[in-house]
Computed example of a mutant assay.
Amino acid sequence: MRAAIVRDFGTPSEVTAIAELQRPTPGKGEVLLRVKAVSLNYVDLVVISGRYQFKPPLPFTPGKGPAGIIEAVGEGVTAWKPGDRVLAMAEIGSYAEFTLAPADQCYALPDAMPFADAAAMALAYDTAWFALHERGRLQAGETVLVLGASGAVGHAAVMLAKAAGAKVLAGITNPAKAPMLVDAGADAIIDLAAPDLRDKLRDQVKAATGGGVDVVIDMLGDVYFEAALRALAWRGRLVVVGFAGGRIPEVKANYLLVKNIEVSGLQISDYRKRRPADVAACFADIFALHGAGKVRPMPMETMPLDDVAQALGRLATRQVAGRLVLLPGSRTEPL
């Protein structure tokens, strides 16, 4: 089978190549998946560069969250059979024509859901869902501020929050991204590039809501976190998802006490290991919302597996407007 391979850690576009590898055999509790589509994610760049918290042994094939068709099942697997359409939360190995995945981390795809849609929504939608519903305890009628709303997780959070009946404020630094977020359901745009953001973010939120926000989903950290904390309403909840803005911020605990607010964090892969039933319920809800036309992946571009190095280079240099999805099979195969 053809697969991307990384023999040494380094610049993703330079160390990732295509090679012919032996097709793997599923072991106990595993399935072999014929990969139809897999998205490229920022975390893949970190893994390939060797900067991720867990380094895979070299050589390895990168890629998370493939969508495809089960080709074979390993010992003890009774929930799946060859021919089943699934999204698999494989942590690695998915930039390939075939990959292995834990059977208990596969989720049945509706027949009408395109593989490319499923791959583009993987990692982004489940992260946003848990941030909003499990950590943020979002209720219909509340107000949500999404920091970094133009990214994959941010775009997903906007759509999911709107589908849940919330008023949604989309925080972005590039005003050119505003139309995409309004189309996704944002009720107001918050300018994160405004000067004196510590005060200006709260002023913008107050103008849009008449008060503060109930939930903040923060992918940025840095000064954006500190400014958003001041924009929380009484009993508001801020969920830390990442630090794409750079600096990791600190919290003064007395401020949490005075406003009765809380800050929590989300590391989505822990839920897959510790609470698999919750993750299954999450994807069932996401797929149902997709089928009802209430959520969709952000704009995507597809590329063949052979172009993986070019695709990683574009991702690293932020030359991708939406989601970039690899199609390991023939270009003529249906998605």
Rank of each mutant, 00 (worst) to 15 (best):
I172Y: 01
N174T: 13
P175E: 14
P175F: 15
K177C: 03
A178G: 10
P179E: 14
P179M: 07
M180G: 03
M180I: 07
V182E: 11
V182K: 11
D183N: 12
A184D: 09
A184M: 11
A184N: 10
G185M: 05
A186C: 08
A186M: 05
A188D: 06
D191M: 03
D191Q: 12
L192R: 03
A193H: 14
A194Y: 09
P195G: 06
P195Y: 07
D196T: 02
D196P: 06
D196E: 03
L197H: 03
L197E: 04
L197Q: 04
D199C: 04
D199A: 07
D199Q: 08
D199M: 03
D199T: 14
D199N: 11
K200S: 14
R202V: 13
D203K: 03
D203F: 01
Q204F: 01
Q204T: 01
Q204E: 11
V205C: 08
K206W: 11
K206F: 12
A208R: 00
T209D: 02
T209A: 05
G211T: 14
G212E: 13
V213K: 01
D214Q: 07
D214L: 03
D214Y: 12
V215Y: 01
V215H: 01
V216E: 09
I217F: 05
M219V: 15
L220H: 02
L220P: 04
G221E: 06
D222E: 13
F225G: 09
E226M: 04
